[in-house]
């Protein structure tokens, strides 16, 4: 066996290789038209995998966007979402629903 040097210094942000989405048994689905864009879900997510971004026309299914929908809206990265349900539990307008995901 080759005698490899062991480094105690690791590269930053390397846990991104772990797709923890495989832990999930329920998936949070956000209704972007009900959502008021308060970003609370993005703030409390322990994974930090909810990012606020501009809503796309396709997400609105061709409907005309109301002013509240021109705000930044959450986007969940299902590669990492563990399905804990914190966002669903805390959502002020109940825009997030958990659906079975296994």
């Amino acid at each position: 066996m080759k005698n490899e040097k062991v480094s105690l210094i690791t590269k930053p942000n390397t846990t991104l290789a772990n797709k923890t989405g495989a832990w999930r048994t329920a998936k949070p689905m956000t209704d972007l038209l009900t959502c008021i864009g308060c970003s609370l879900c993005a703030k409390i997510c322990p994974e930090g995998c909810i990012v606020m971004g501009e809503i796309s026309e396709s997400a609105a299914n061709g409907k005309k966007l109301k002013p509240k929908n021109k705000k930044l809206k959450p986007k969940t990265d299902y590669n990492y979402c563990k399905g804990c349900g914190l966002c669903t539990h805390e959502c002020l307008v109940k825009a997030i629903k958990m659906i079975k995901d296994y």
Binding site: K43, V51, G85
Partner: peptide, 16 residues
Amino acid sequence: SNENKFLSPGHNACAG
């Protein structure tokens, strides 16, 4: 608006 590069996902903490 809030992408956080100081603490990445993929860590092993419990869900929630």
